[in-house]
Amino acid sequence: MSKVTSLAEAVGSISDGEHLSLSGFAITRCTMAFAREVIRQGLRGLTISQCVGAMDADLLTGAGVVERLIYGGGSLDRFGRLANINRGIENGSLCAEEYSSLSIAFRYLAGSLGLPFIPIRSLRGSDLLRQIRARTAEDVAEVTDPFTGENWLALKPLQPDVAVVQVQAADEDGNAWIFGPKWDNPEQARAAKRTIVITERILSGDEIRKHAEQTIIPGLLVSHVVELPFGAHPTSVYGAYDYDDVQIRCYVEAAKTPASFQAYLQEFVYGVKDHQGYLDKVGGVARLEQLRADPVLGY
């Protein structure tokens, strides 16, 4: 069955207040075109989760779409901090539940396996745990190992309403390949109630079947497939294109103040009709061709 839809239709399936996990890691495979469409459609009150905070979550936060963020800290690598997220935490407008990379990954893993909780060695003795206990005490607990009697910290599973995953290739049913490291994406998709796949290109079902061991997300988890070349721009997609340093710097500069970020949103999100309009805005085919990855290097 074909699940191929437009980006607008896939975003339209999401309701205000839902919990979305996003596939980005800092400045790579971020769900950027998806985030821009979420902002254009005016969704509100979202909960966003990901192991390492990335540009997709920061953009949504800067646009006022995010009420709650569950993450393990993050940055835009050398380009700068997650300015909108940090500002939201500092002024109290964003409810941030801050963990470590592995504790979020374990929460997704427990969610993906249908387990009631997962024990972890991390977080103990830290102010991260003290802060979690003060803010969302229901998400952590002490448990005793029934076999050894040892005391463990247990985490509650994460089960997002929707996992949004930016991938290199998928078929019409949503069987999706991810090349390069996959960080938390396999567990995100399995923990979520459903998955929206944003793919650089759609392959035939026969093509996927020939190399089915590369399928990271099974189609049975997927509700929508959107074919969207350069959907992660200005972040990178391994084997497809490099990050756009000019556009990331432009973003970092704009994110320094709420006013300049509003101007950025006007120009690059509200001021363009759709993803094609955005790509034209950032330099069109001429610029995108410069970013295309060398197949051997992957960047």
């Binding site: 400045i27 690598d77 050398r78 592995l102 893993l109 390069g180 938390d184 567990e187 990178s236 391994y238």
Partner: peptide, 26 residues
Amino acid sequence: HTGVGLADPRVWYRANVLSSFVDILG
């Protein structure tokens, strides 16, 4: 080539494993 961070594919080049958080940190 030198990368701008862990998210830069330049620093993944010629790795012998490309997997996940659960695989590495787990």
